[in-house]
């Protein structure tokens, strides 16, 4: 019992710091969204209460942004899962140092840092929704692949030889064995891609055109370029709600 009490005591400050920090941020964002916009150079009117920022959330401009954000979520989700599956299938048959080598190449976009990635992507990709979708996917693919590689390596290594020995072709092995057994991991990468895509920021910022504005991009734009803090905060709340509902929807499983 003393051990339990000690462990609770040890965890409490961390819990307060981590949960408190994140939650306080969310709560203060909600409060900020209820401020009146500042007059002149001011960012917001301290102490004021106003729904003016929320009133603008329903206009055509914001409806378009929310739609783009949701589409980005689905696009990144599908694309990163498909590419991740391809790369995971490529990596898994290797063993030892060769496997490590392929994994380093797969993880390179993550391991090499965001500046190098963005610089190269900006040089290579066309501006527009295709470029920004590819850039977002490119940044996520290492994670998706990692999840799928772990799942594929968890499959009993004898199942594939067993299926091949029973006369199944390579495609049949993929369809009848690998695919059904990796479905839970595929669902997880789809969810991860969805949540990640909803927060799409770097892609639209560096590669998107004026029509590819997502919520995350708009938050940054309102806050830093236009200095309208309450509006940025209201958009932030919308983004948090979208993300939370995506996570809730992704965690739902049909009961057996």
């Amino acid at each position: 019992m003393t051990l339990l009490r000690a462990s609770i005591a040890i965890l409490l400050p961390t819990l307060l710091l981590v949960v408190g920090g994140t939650a306080a941020g969310a709560i203060l964002t909600v409060r900020m969204s209820l401020h009146a916009p500042g007059a002149g150079a001011g960012l917001f009117e301290p102490g004021s209460v106003s729904l003016s920022s929320w009133a603008s959330m329903g206009d055509a401009h914001h409806r378009g942004i929310v739609l783009t954000t949701i589409l980005a979520g689905w696009g990144v989700s599908l694309l990163s899962t498909a590419i991740g599956a391809l790369l995971a299938l490529l990596a898994v048959p290797f063993a030892g140092l060769r496997f490590m080598g392929v994994m380093v190449l797969i993880l390179a976009p993550r391991l090499s840092g965001v500046i190098a990635s963005l610089f190269g992507l900006q040089r290579l990709l066309p501006r527009g929704w295709i470029g920004s979708l590819i850039a977002e996917t490119w940044l996520l693919v290492p994670y998706s692949t990692l999840i799928l590689v772990i799942a594929l390596r968890g499959i009993d290594p004898h199942l594939v030889p067993a299926a091949r020995g029973l006369g199944a072709s390579r495609w049949q092995v993929l369809r009848w064995i690998i695919w059904p057994l990796s479905l839970p991991a595929v669902a997880l990468t789809l969810q991860l891609g969805w949540v990640w895509g909803l927060g799409a920021f770097l892609g639209p910022l560096f590669l998107g055109g004026p029509d590819q504005s997502t919520l995350a991009f708009e938050i940054h734009h309102e806050a830093f370029d236009l200095g309208r803090w309450p509006r940025a905060a209201a958009e932030g709340v919308v983004l948090m709600v979208l993300t939370a509902s995506a996570m809730a929807a992704g965690s739902w499983r049909p009961r057996p």
Binding site: D156, H158, L159, P161, A162, A163, G165, W176, I177, P180, L181
Partner: peptide, 13 residues
């Protein structure tokens, strides 16, 4: 040829 593997390798799904 038919083979019974040491760990059986039955398809779990």
């Amino acid at each position: 040829t038919g083979m019974v593997f040491q760990n059986l390798a039955l398809f779990p799904h």
